[in-house]
Amino acid sequence: MGQIELKGVTKQFGDVEVIPPLDLQINEGEFVVFVGPSGCGKSTLLRLIAGLEDTSGGKIFIDGKDATDLRPAQRRLAMVFQSYALYPHMSVRKNIAFPLKMAKLSQAEIDKKVEGAAKVLNLSSYLDRRPGQLSGGQRQRVAIGRAIVREPAAFLFDEPLSNLDAALRVNMRLEISELHNSLKTTMIYVTHDQVEAMTMADQIVVLQAGRIEQVGSPLDLYRHPRNRFVAGFIGSPKMNFIGGAEAAKHSAHEIGVRPEHIKAGQSGEWQGRVTVSEHLGSDTYLHVQTDHGLINVRADGEIGLHHGDTVWLTPDPACIHKFDANGMTI
């Protein structure tokens, strides 16, 4: 189980409407990522689902039952916080056992479940340590352990990787994905990092100013962004936007081309001069000043262009996104 449905949910803080009426359906077993720039309301939305905030209007259904007025503990949801929110005065074992203790399980059952979770998460040898004695990644795993022992209807993750360094973040991303594959429980994951969203999600929900801009699978959003905002937010490096005459050629108000869909060569459509070149070996990133503004280009492998070189750019005609004056995709 683990199907969640929001119907006309709104949230106001005082006079400020953080989330205008919003509908969303999350299916059982899905890995759904809420992504958007900071302040877009994605964390608030998660906290509304968790029951840590009251909705100002609308209904939340969990597995078909109205959960709008239930206390957080009664919603059968588990949450992993950005700061991990481990209890610093309890050992790892007691941290993981805490929700079971609150549910008044027998000690034998608690022990069995804690050992089981510890094994899955590679924490068995750390059970008697305090959170303060663990590394960031281990703390993260304890927080996840505390969530999985409850066998919840769904997991909620609130930017769980933002306190980790880059290398560890990639690792934990894989671990969480694996966990989802083995548990098959619904997961809702909040992040501002579109790479996390693209790599982990079954469904991505792109939010801006409390509104849902688009819902879809990662590749769906990448290939068919509904509007200019989603187009610019998904994909890295960001899509190039060109307006004016060049856009008019495609009978659009503005066109967008992803850096990986532009070819750099000795001849082509747009002439420009390289201002910065970044050579990663596997890829080359070029920042090119053209008549249409600064254009980013991503080329596979190494191409020998450097600061000051003149270059011609050609967009792949099949991958040009067209937008109207309201920023909607044509």
């Binding site: 588990a78 700061s83 805490f98 929700p99 609150m102």
Partner: peptide, 11 residues
């Protein structure tokens, strides 16, 4: 967040 975690955990 720690108190919220406790609330989520059923306290």
């Amino acid at each position: 967040e720690i108190l919220e975690a406790a609330r989520m955990d059923g306290a």
